[in-house]
Design a binder for these strands. Structure first.
Lengths: 194, 194
DNA sequence: GTACGATACGGAGGCTACCTCCGGTTAGCA
DNA sequence: TGCTAACCGGAGGTAGCCTCCGTATCGTAC
């Protein structure tokens, strides 16, 4: 059974992870992110294991299939984005929180291009992975959008799912020039403005 | 050397393709489209060859690498979209042509989800394939958008590239409900309206 | 209508990456 | 300090991509 996030669910009493296992798990995640960034989505797992300084059998003990490793890397990044929404809601005005979060969402989505394609193709939209990730991201988007709508600064017929696809879908394509990305965000924001 | 579109460029005098070669080429494209649609982007080429009724060596004679086959399938669909723009420009009002072409663009993009990810990951944004396809599609988008802007029915600061990414990028994700797709198009169109 | 040759075919086999198996190692608890 | 359950790791099996080369056939010329 693949672990998600970090340690497995404690449904029965069990020992916490051994120190060497914990260390290798973390090194594998870091090595996976680095290798995927530099080599691309077809990076061989043998290369990930080599960079982590472990054997291929150790990699497969922690991540029974290639997709399990990609998923673990992806979940970490999704949770980081949720944390960002909480911070903006606490510290920014309704419109600034909406605009700021969307800007960070673009940055997150852009760096996941190679990883995401392989995940989506393999597990499909109904997998727990994507359902959970969409839920976390949608919750964040809902919070920042609803707050802006309630403040009367965002159109009321926009829904969070639409928002995410309009902004995030663009970044799934090739590298965008920063000014083009800013312009596209402006079009969406102008369309959103109440 | 892989052929693109259909027969190779006639830079030097040469015989047209033999009848059996022509027949197998077409059968391979049809079998590839069917197999990719039903199995997904990880469909083995042996399965494509089997469905086409040819040997794997014949498949590789026509398409030296897997990506060559995917590319040939994709080019055919891109050219079909360009033909659609010409037809709408000749027969519809500026705004209706813009809206109609975007609707067809969404349909085209949705059916290429599995195929497109593998192509983009492998060849990158600067390949002739994607440059050519973007050119063909951008030319179509430019025509329908400029005509709407000149008619004063579309905002003047929108550019064709932004248009395509806003609409097309959404469809690269999971299957969309028809009503959601219509609503997203409405947001983009409302944002575009002059 | 037939023969010939250049083009096309096709399946066995090499190579690579995913993943498994199992003997050896070690962390941590009693 | 000893013991054991958890952990490690690399050789090897398998599937799919792609190559190679003997055989088949299309199409042209006589």
């Amino acid at each position: 059974m693949a672990t998600t996030g970090s340690a497995p669910a404690a449904s029965v009493p069990q020992r916490p992870m051994r120190a060497d296992a914990r260390r290798n798990y973390d090194r594998l995640l870091d090595a996976a992110r680095t290798t995927l960034t530099e080599v691309g989505s077809d990076a061989p797992l043998e290369e990930v294991a080599r960079r982590a300084g472990v054997g291929i059998g150790t990699l497969y003990r922690h991540f029974p299939r290639r997709l399990d490793l990609l998923e673990a890397v992806y979940r970490k990044d999704v949770e980081k984005l949720a944390t960002s929404a909480e911070r903006l809601l606490a510290a920014a005005s309704p419109w600034d929180a909406l605009e700021g979060w969307l800007t960070e969402f673009i940055g997150y989505a852009t760096t996941k291009r190679a990883l995401f394609h392989e995940l989506v193709d393999a597990v499909g939209r109904d997998s727990e992975l994507l359902t959970y990730s969409r839920q976390v991201i949608t919750t964040s988007a809902t919070s920042v959008l609803a707050r802006a709508q309630e403040a009367g600064v965002a159109r009321r017929d926009a829904e969070p799912g639409d928002l995410l696809r309009l902004v995030g879908g663009c970044t799934m394509m090739a590298d965008l020039e920063p000014d083009q990305q800013a312009r596209m965000l402006r079009i969406v924001l102008d369309g959103l403005r109440a």
